[in-house]
């Protein structure tokens, strides 16, 4: 963190919450990116993601009981796909944290956290639908918004729309 910069109250609390997670998991997670708009850390050892999630939800000083959002992102430069989850502790604490998990672009997989937060269930299906990463351990991983027989993953940066769908012309 730069010196002389005023750190807001909520950022301090988020940093404190991060240090509890860091204490437990050490090098499995990256350092905290303490920006003002969205403090986040990245899970480096993705196989531990479900455990980290459970720890974040159940630790008495963390209690991240509310998953606000789960976003899938495409990083074509790094040849990776990723998810970003925004957590907070609803009605208990003031800290907020975002977590990034990344996987390989082709056939990569991320452990599912649908068993930890119900919110993740549909959001992970949506991320799969739009980006094509797999979620291991998800109860029913299938497309949610696009039809089941849709070709390609629409929100990837290199997506090319199909010409025909069931005999109907798709592009304008």
């Amino acid at each position: 963190m730069e010196e002389g910069k005023v750190i807001s109250q909520s950022l301090q609390e988020s940093a404190a919450a991060y240090s509890i997670i860091h204490e437990k998991f050490g090098s499995a997670i990256s350092a905290l990116d303490a920006n003002e708009t969205m403090p986040f850390f990245e899970v480096i050892d993705t196989s531990q993601w479900t455990e980290i999630a459970l720890f974040m939800r159940d630790h008495p000083k963390l209690k991240f009981n509310y998953m606000a959002c789960l976003t899938g992102v495409d990083y074509p430069a790094e040849e990776k796909l990723g998810i970003i989850c925004n957590f907070e502790s609803l009605a208990l604490f003031n800290h907020k944290l975002a977590v990034k998990v990344k996987c390989a672009r082709d056939g990569g997989s991320i452990p599912s956290v649908a068993c930890v937060w119900h919110t993740a269930n549909w959001h992970e299906r949506e991320a799969y639908d739009m980006f094509g990463m797999l979620f291991t351990g998800h109860p029913e991983l299938k497309r949610i918004l696009c039809p089941d027989d849709w070709v390609g993953y629409p929100l990837r940066k290199d997506y090319k729309v199909q010409d025909q769908y069931h005999g109907i012309k798709v592009p304008y």
Partner: peptide, 15 residues
């Protein structure tokens, strides 16, 4: 959605 809406039918008169 005519340009970027990959999932939108561009005119119901197509069907």
């Amino acid at each position: 959605y005519w340009e970027h809406g990959y999932h939108v039918l561009k005119g119901v008169d197509r069907i």
